[in-house]
Design a protein around this nucleic acid. Sequence first.
DNA 1: GTCCAGGGCCTAC
DNA 2: GTAGGCCATGGA
Length: 222
Amino acid sequence: MDRRDKLLGIYSALLKAFGHQGWWPASSRFEVMVGAILTQNTAWTNVEKAIANLRREGLLNLKRFDKISHRRLAKLIRPAGYFNVKAKRLKSFIHFLKESSRGNLDRLFHAPLDRLRRRLLAVHGVGPETADSILLYAGGKPIFVIDAYTKRFLIRHKLARGNPSYDEMQDLFMKSLPRSVELFKDYHAQIVQLGKTYCRKTPRCMACPLRDFKPQGSFSSI
DNA sequence: GTCCAGGGCCTAC
DNA sequence: GTAGGCCATGGA
């Protein structure tokens, strides 16, 4: 079984077990981008509380978000943790949106993928995972998101070993899978669901939808 | 009380 | 280029 078949087989098994995940859970592209920064190293349940605060205050749009003070923003996003760090990062991101496209998201995402990714990575507080989450889930760009769940998944299923870099892991998916935005979106969401449900505390659980994919087969080097 | 969550920045070496 | 410290809340 080559890597493409194994990855597609795993996706098929996850989809059957969990159903479509419908990611990203947000009502606008702006909310996706705010959520992508708020969820850095943070449980999504805590991000939801912060998003709810911002929504209640009518701040989930660029114009109103831009006017809020650091102090008030930090207070509203407090449940998401690292609130001082994230308030600063959100402000930097809003500044980027204004400077790059005057807040016009259609114009922002009209840019070529590689160029836009480089510009996002230049924003303070936007690293590879956050940039790719924004590109895929807000921009509808075909790029695969790598996170801590994905890294554990790849190592556990012998698709990677050692300490693979972000780019290596991303290449592994993108060079093997069809270039489909919907597949990339749902595959990442399925991996997170798998990690939350089975693979963190009970890696050998016989109810795991991937039990038939475990250690069998040869190692696929990156 | 301890551990961890849908990271990224900064500094030291 | 990479290892380690730092940022912080809330649920298990």
